[in-house]
């Protein structure tokens, strides 16, 4: 679906990434071997990751922000709040609210995996 908030022409950023990934999978991988073929496959997987990030970014950002604001009780950027949380955990400030922290951190890591490697969340087998 065309992005209503863009000035750029088609293909969109996501569509360009798909074009490069298909080139790697369909042209580069079959006609190379060894290290080059291996790295082409890694590169194609990286582009799949980028595709997922472009699709999920807006929703994930909103949810992450809401989670962190709720846990920490004040506004801030995701980076600021995450740094604050990491420091507080290290200092032991959250030892008495383990359950809340674990729930929040787990949701964050789940969101990261939905982009980085969603298959990892299924059964945990066969990466």
């Amino acid at each position: 679906m065309p992005d209503p908030e863009t000035l750029h022409d088609r293909p969109s950023a996501a569509e360009l990434v798909i074009a490069v990934r298909e080139y790697l999978e369909q042209d580069v991988m079959p006609s190379t071997e060894g290290r080059v073929a291996f790295h082409a496959r890694v590169a194609a997987n990286v582009l799949r990751m980028v595709e997922r990030e472009l699709t999920l970014a807006a929703t994930q950002t909103a949810q992450e922000s809401e989670r962190l604001v709720q846990l920490l009780g004040h506004e801030g950027t995701i980076r600021e709040l995450t740094i604050e949380l990491a420091k507080a955990i290290r200092a032991g400030d959250w030892d008495t609210r383990q359950a809340d922290v674990h729930k929040c951190v787990r949701a964050t890591v789940r969101a990261k995996l939905e982009v980085a490697n969603p298959e990892y969340l299924l059964a945990g087998d066969e990466q």
Binding site: F38, N45, R106, V109, K112, A116, N117, Y120
Partner: peptide
């Protein structure tokens, strides 16, 4: 500089997940 190393940077989330699974 290596696409393989770059990709490993995003594998961090897998170990974070395993870690939380173990702790919980």
């Amino acid at each position: 500089r290596s696409v393989e190393l770059a990709a490993l940077g995003r594998r961090v989330a897998e170990m974070e997940w395993d870690l939380l699974e173990l702790l919980d």
